[in-house]
């Protein structure tokens, strides 16, 4: 069986700074080759995504249980939400998912300019999502007294347990929004590294990973949107 090179890869020769970073990339010393390393990273990301799904499944469970316990309160709570804002946010996230997939495609084809544009659009969509969420949903609702648990102070509540609905709403969308913020940080990092020329046809592991993560964030919203906004 082939013996592997166990030494650290040689540093790039002085004077070859013109060669883009992605071409100079050498895989970790404990890997046999870059393909193995890429596959491993992908398995790792998928496992991480499995943990994310399980994290949200806890919230979905809580939703289902309280829906069974207090169906009227949950339905009433849902009716306070405007499906148009939720729908707009769904569209925004779907666009961002598309653009990040395009960015990865661009990098694979070494279209660095378009990759950059697509990454920027993705980032802006994420920001737009948060702005819509905050300005048109969280702030007005909170100021009307539609708050979680003991903070609930909405004078026109019709059912006894609407506070529980708001708890579920704020916690599940809040955890999701935290993931969007995390995604924005990662995408910003991608934009920075991409500007340095770190990603190209032979090396785009990080972009692939963040892309998959971003799709999961999108997917969770695809489940949250109908559960919270549409199902009465």
């Amino acid at each position: 069986m082939a013996s592997i090179d166990t030494h650290q890869p040689a540093l790039p020769e002085p004077g070859n700074e013109k060669v883009p970073l992605w071409q100079r990339y050498t895989h970790g010393h404990h890997w046999r080759n870059a393909d193995d390393e890429f596959d491993a990273a992908k398995i790792g990301i998928w496992l991480f995504l499995a943990t994310e799904v399980l994290l949200f499944s806890g919230m979905f469970c809580a939703y289902a249980i309280f829906r069974m316990m207090y169906p009227e309160s949950i339905a009433a709570g849902s009716s306070y939400l405007d499906w148009r804002w939720g729908g707009l946010n769904t569209v925004v996230l779907l666009i961002s998912s598309f653009t990040i997939a395009m960015a990865i495609r661009n990098v694979q084809l070494n279209q660095q300019f378009w990759a950059r544009i697509n990454l920027l659009i993705t980032w802006l969509c994420a920001a737009a999502f948060l702005v819509i969420k905050l300005v048109f949903e969280y702030i007005p609702k909170w100021s009307e007294g539609k708050r979680p648990g003991s903070l609930f102070d909405y004078p026109f509540a019709q059912h006894a347990h609407e506070n529980v609905w708001w708890s579920i709403y704020y916690v599940s969308t809040g955890i999701h929004a935290t993931h969007v913020i995390g995604g924005m940080v990662l995408i910003a990092w991608l934009i920075y590294r991409q500007g340095k020329g770190a990603y190209g046809p032979t090396h785009y592991t990080m972009m692939e990973g963040v892309g998959l993560y971003w799709h999961i964030v999108d997917l969770v919203w695809i489940f949250l949107f109908p559960l919270l906004y549409l199902v009465h």
């Binding site: 496992l47 499995a50 943990t51 994310e52 399980l54 994290l55 949200f56 499944s57 806890g58 919230m59 809580a62 309280f66 979680p148 648990g149 003991s150 903070l151 506070n163 529980v164 708890s167 579920i168 704020y170 916690v171 955890i175």
Partner: peptide, 25 residues
């Protein structure tokens, strides 16, 4: 570890929210 731990994660988060904000879950 990978499949079970996230569930305790969200549970403990809810517990912290419960403790700090009395969200009532």
């Amino acid at each position: 570890q990978v499949l079970a731990t996230p569930v305790i994660g969200v549970t403990l988060l809810l517990l912290i929210f419960e403790r700090v904000l009395q969200i009532g879950i």
